[in-house]
Design a protein around this nucleic acid. Structure first.
Lengths: 242, 242
DNA sequence: TCCCCGCGTTGACCTGGATCAAGGAAATGC
DNA sequence: GCATTTCCTTGATCCAGGTCAACGCGGGGA
């Protein structure tokens, strides 16, 4: 715990000082002294790609903020069919208040760096600081909007539109500091083809074919299977069929 | 406004006395005097089947509790393809806090009876009564769980499983007082075949064919197109493919 | 260095669900 | 009472995306 109370600015713990979650995430609702208390109980750590963060039907005893990387939330049917039901980027909050158990799996899609703290500490702070719950409600509503947007993609879009929509989603989220007016975009795909398929309700082969089509139509360029170049994001958007 | 302060029990407004929303809904978080204040500003009304409650990109200036009936939440792509992204049953809360505009359409799937109150009144109460926000957070998280469950249905289930899943959903929600151990269930479908198709990401024809299949396999019986009898809900559940 | 092995691509073929078309039944209007 | 419309069902055909199979490529271990 690299908390050093002697070196601070406005009483902000060093741990939190450069943390995005303090501005756009849930921690922004906390008073400096609460932030200090939470920082004391929290620790930063890295989870390797492929490792599980929260198991299905497992006890949840920590909450986390995503500091970097991408977390995938998945659900699986009894016969093994899988669906990714959400992606969490920095500085999203990870955890399910008011429930002992999670109904979904959370897994590191890339190497992920997290700031975790005990559920109990957070739950206590929620009581004394209504602003915290307010932030959580905001995040929950945003996630709900996202989930419902994605339901349209899953239920009504073609494979080609699904893949374009996915690329748009990543482009929007992977680097939030990007100038939204800029037409050329480049990013690394945080998911394998199999994950993309599970996110889109398609097979690996269909995802691959649709990516090839976008490539041959010069909408995107791909290097090393993962690195994507988009010359004009509006052409990609036009293919997402909204 | 049939609020009669002379006849009350524990200061509960008559309007609210028999209201489900007071127990399981958001109003349960309110103190009697707050309930009275809210009741003063609220009014019960009925919206006919097919009428729009909240238009896409329309200002939201009221919140409502659903007292009876079913509300469908829809999203539409620019070319007209539609997806139902949620169904609201009594005593669900209807409205989107923290936003001027709605990104979804809400429409009465059946005749719906609502208890509506001005957004401003509610927003003010949220400030003075953190318990309200707590309830809203709970409802939002439940809706999020539901949405994610449905994403699995949309993305990974077959048409047959989708239709069975839909019937299970209705059976579970239409009459919450039903004994969950009871195997025989009967209910009215609150949606037309077209709506069901929009909810499941299918066409009308496919929905119809799958219903006939369930019928010929003696899993369900249908009268007057809308009234469904299930002899053994476990047989239906087995077809939902979870 | 070579050999896996995991990941991605591509081709050939198949099928579940979409599309197109027809018609029945119940509700609504005149 | 009849015409019209809306909702639903059923059949015939089509095609987007799934399935099966082969192969290419880059990275890691012996």
């Amino acid at each position: 715990m690299e908390l050093r109370k002697d070196i601070h600015s406005d009483g902000i713990p060093l741990l939190c000082e450069s943390c995005q979650a303090r501005h756009r995430g849930v921690c922004g609702a906390l008073e400096p002294e609460q932030l200090i208390a939470l920082a004391k109980a929290s620790h930063k750590h890295v989870v390797k790609e492929g490792e599980e963060l929260i198991g299905d039907a497992e006890r949840i005893d920590v909450y986390s903020n995503v500091l970097s990387g991408v977390v995938k939330l998945t659900k699986t049917l009894s016969d093994g069919r899988q669906q990714i039901v959400g992606l969490q980027f920095a500085p999203d909050f990870l955890g399910r208040p008011f429930r002992k158990e999670s109904s979904i799996n959370a897994e590191a899609a890339t190497d992920v760096s997290l700031c975790s703290f005990p559920k109990a500490t957070m739950d206590r702070m929620m009581q004394e600081q209504p602003g915290l719950e307010h932030r959580l409600l905001q995040q929950a509503l945003i996630e709900l909007d996202d989930a419902r947007d994605w339901m349209v993609t899953l239920g009504r879009k073609t494979a080609a539109e699904k893949v374009a929509s996915f690329l748009m989603l990543i482009a929007r989220n992977i680097d939030p500091s990007r100038d939204p007016e800029r037409r050329a975009v480049t990013f690394d795909l945080p998911l394998t083809r199999a994950d993309i398929a599970d996110f889109l309700g398609l097979t690996i082969e269909t995802v691959s074919r649709q990516l090839t089509r976008l490539r041959t139509d010069n909408v995107i360029r791909i290097e090393n299977n993962r690195h994507v170049f988009v010359d004009d994001i509006r052409r990609l958007e036009a293919r997402a069929g909204n």
